[in-house]
Nucleic acid binder design. Structure first.
Length: 295
DNA sequence: CGCAGGCCCTGGTAGC
DNA sequence: TGCTACCAGGGCCTGC
């Protein structure tokens, strides 16, 4: 379940291993991986094969490889605006390795490079992930223009986010998961941030006090940064970096996936509530349930 | 515009 | 044991 920290780890790995190289061949092994690419698999291959990879950028849980140019210090190079945009969904992986290694069963797309070096394999067991080429690489790809800035973005506007959050008439957890309000937060980091800020997930966003919102923004920022420093969360073994290595933030999880286990702060047993056909984990003592829960 | 719910998908596991 | 049911989940999409 890659959320912002995991996606950022992968972005860095790709920047290290793929930026500055020229794509040679592209194979699409599962049509669903390019279902959002206008023109389908044939056009996707034509739009990526033979092109140079520049910087790798990210917004929230999306990242994109700049195609043709965009590499720092090479301003004279032709600057094309295309982005190879990636969303990993629940189980997507970007794996770098020797071209000769066997093809694992869930590889959905494969990229080789003209230098004959390590290839790149988009591997995705549950096929929620997707790849597409669209314009807007230099700023934000058009396809994700509706995705809000994430809390680690230098231009993230805390004031604007706080105001918009306090106008929402839904539960605060639901709001945190809305990528058009703030991006990069999924189920794991929403629960961890709310626990840290001592806010119940079903608190109505429009009833939060300003101090609550300030504490929440602080909590989200710290949780995401700490998870990033730990290399991300490998909860169900589906997340690994480009070299196949796991992250270690699961050792620091306070509530997520810990129903019945003691809250690290007060020892009360962590509670699991049904939430949008999934789960919300919280401490019944640290995160007081509101009189009128707004899930 | 905001909000809620359906849908897409597979592998692991619980339960019968 | 072999079957079924359910769970995990992000985000697009539709309907209100």
């Amino acid at each position: 379940m890659p959320e912002l920290p995991e996606v950022e780890i992968i972005r860095r790995g790709l920047a290290k291993h793929v930026s500055g190289r020229r794509i040679a061949t592209v194979e699409v092994l599962h049509r669903r991986a390019v279902r959002r690419h206008v023109g389908g698999a044939v056009d996707f291959i034509a739009s990526t094969a033979g092109r140079d990879v520049g910087e790798v950028r990210r917004r929230g849980k999306y990242f994109w490889l700049c195609l043709d140019g965009g590499i720092a210090g090479q301003a004279d190079r032709k600057l094309d605006d295309d982005a190879l945009l990636v969303h990993l969904g629940m189980s997507g992986q970007m794996l770098i390795g020797p071209p000769t290694r066997p093809l694992s069963p869930h590889v959905r797309a494969r990229f080789t490079f003209t230098d004959g070096g390590p290839d790149l394999r988009f591997t995705d067991q549950r096929t929620f992930g997707q790849l597409l080429v669209c314009p807007g690489a230099a700023t934000v790809p058009t396809y994700i223009a509706h995705i809000a800035r994430d809390p680690l973005d230098p231009d993230f506007d805390v004031g604007e986010f706080s105001e918009r959050l306090r106008r929402r008439r839904s539960g605060v957890k639901r709001a945190l998961l809305d990528q058009s309000l703030v991006s990069g937060i999924g189920n794991i980091y929403a629960d961890e941030s709310l626990w840290r800020a001592m806010l119940h997930p079903a608190r109505s966003a429009d009833l939060l006090r300003k101090t609550d919102v300030t504490r929440l923004v602080e909590a989200v920022t710290v949780v995401l940064a700490e998870a990033l420093a730990a290399g991300g969360t490998t909860f169900d073994s589906l997340y690994v970096n480009v070299n196949g290595q796991r992250g270690y933030y699961d050792h620091s999880l306070a509530v997520y996936g810990r129903a019945g286990l003691p809250c690290p702060r007060c020892g009360t047993r962590v509670r699991r509530d049904p939430f949008m056909n999934r789960s919300a984990y919280s401490c019944p003592s640290c995160q007081r349930r509101p009189r009128h829960p707004h899930w």
